[in-house]
Design a binder for these strands. Sequence first.
DNA 1: AAACAAACCTGTGCGC
DNA 2: TGCGCACAGGTTTGTT
Length: 280
Amino acid sequence: MPELPEVETVRRGLEVQVVGRRIERVEVGRERTVRRTSRQALVDGLTGATITAANRRGKYLLCPLDTGDELMVHLRMSGRLLVADAGTARPPHTHVVMHLSGAPAQELWFIDPRTFGEMVVFDPANLAVEMPDLARLGVDPITDGLTKAQLGNILRGRRRQLKALLMDQHVVAGVGNIYCDESLHLAKLRPDRISDTLTTREIGRLHDAVLSVLSLAIEAGGSTLADTQYVDLEGQGGWFQVHHRVYDRAGQRCLTCGKADIVRIMSAGRSTCFCPRCQR
DNA sequence: AAACAAACCTGTGCGC
DNA sequence: TGCGCACAGGTTTGTT
């Protein structure tokens, strides 16, 4: 579910609501959520610790603790973080509950029906060993800043379909299925175009499109689809879905040219929507 | 090197 | 109404 803009929205919520608070007590239900280590490791790593910051790299949330360790949360497909008043009824699939210090008494919940998401406390000094996936993450267009030259090198350095390349977290971190399709449409590039065939002008368009789509989506608080799965820390949905021009619009008229219908293909193992007239 | 399929799970929507 | 199948914001692993 959540891609860079949704994770960034959650991060901002954590910054306002959770940073500076101490975790008094931790309950871990489903062990699968903490499969990288164990229930005990998460409880021991968080209990008594104060969250000192909320950072993001790609789709990874990274919260440094005053113990020197760091909490990593990845929402994967269906994970949600929610702040709620203590004692509020917990929704189904609430796998981790963190009791926070301060008034009013509140809890930070990790909810995840599909259980692909995960939480882990790790020592940042051992990043390469404990978190190899995180260590190999590519450039984050927002936090690292992605220059045109950088993107040019990424594209020219390989011979891959744009869809697969942009979604590869080891290359560009944070772009998922929605924002990939939306960026390619804005850039007027087909998802199956081969990366090293782009002209300088096209590279420029793609660079502008990725940054503009991600920035606008962050401003809109991300995309909340019909299933309302994604909500921010306070349970509020985002609004970027009203700006989607191709995602989930197969068979409908292209909003840009008004002449062709949006087409759906499978690319990089994912449902991919584009306008065959606008995108070349 | 890159494309593809399957795996991990649960829930929902659709056709019959 | 109910059943079975396809599919879903992600990532890893193994195979061509």
